Simulated scan of single mutants.
Amino acid sequence: MIPIRPFPVDAPEATACLVAYFAELSARFGQTFDPYADADPAALQPPRGLFLIAGTGTPMGCVALRTGAEGLPPGTGEVKRLWVAPAARGQGLARRLMAEVETAARGMGLSHLRLDTSRHLPEAQALYLRDGWTGISRYNSNPYADHWFEKRLGPAQIS
């Protein structure tokens, strides 16, 4: 099983994930993707957030969590930068990354999560709907977003 663990957002592994993520978004959007929302990298690090990476050696995926962003009420975090390497797709890694970020959010005392996504990422939309996310109205000014979602975090599941 591919391990998932936290990394500093400025670690080489995190940079590798984000470069691949932004390159894929640029190709899908047909324009250069400008990561406007990462103006404050500290928002993706404890105590305000978290950056998770899947894999050892070569990163196979990532996801980030932040609090205190635009449009987020108290007790709500925002999920950002969910990405899985093409070679690791179809193995449930995105779902595992999302489960890990939800667990981390509960541990931070959050009761809700929000996220936004683009119409260019239909597989992400399908994942969120399948995993209990609910469509909501726009909560931020992300120029790339077409869909906004929220999830209420219940108590931790015992497996």
Rank of each mutant, 00 (worst) to 15 (best):
M1Q: 05
M1W: 04
I2E: 13
I2Q: 10
P3L: 02
R5G: 07
R5F: 00
R5I: 01
P6E: 05
V9C: 15
V9L: 14
D10K: 07
D10W: 09
A14L: 00
A14H: 00
T15Q: 13
T15L: 05
T15P: 00
C17N: 12
V19G: 03
Y21R: 12
Y21C: 11
F22S: 15
S26H: 07
Q31V: 15
T32P: 06
A37Q: 09
D38N: 11
P41T: 03
L44W: 11
L44T: 10
L52A: 07
I53S: 13
I53V: 14
T56N: 14
G57K: 12
G57S: 13
C62I: 07
L65E: 07
L65W: 10
L65C: 12
G68Y: 05
E70C: 01
G71R: 00
L72P: 01
G75H: 00
T76Y: 04
V79F: 02
K80C: 00
V84G: 05
P86K: 05
A88L: 03
A88W: 00
G92P: 09
R96V: 08
L97R: 11
A99C: 05
A99W: 09
A99Q: 13
A99K: 08
E102W: 02
A104L: 05
A105W: 04
R106Q: 11
G109F: 00
L110G: 14
R114Q: 15
D116S: 15
H120G: 12
P122E: 05
P122H: 11
P122R: 02
E123Y: 11
E123F: 01
A124E: 04
A124F: 03
A126W: 10
A126C: 13
Y128S: 08
D131P: 04
D131G: 04
W133P: 15
I136N: 11
I136H: 09
R138F: 10
S141G: 06
S141Y: 00
P143L: 10
Y144V: 15
Y144G: 14
D146W: 01
D146F: 04
H147C: 07
H147V: 06
W148T: 13
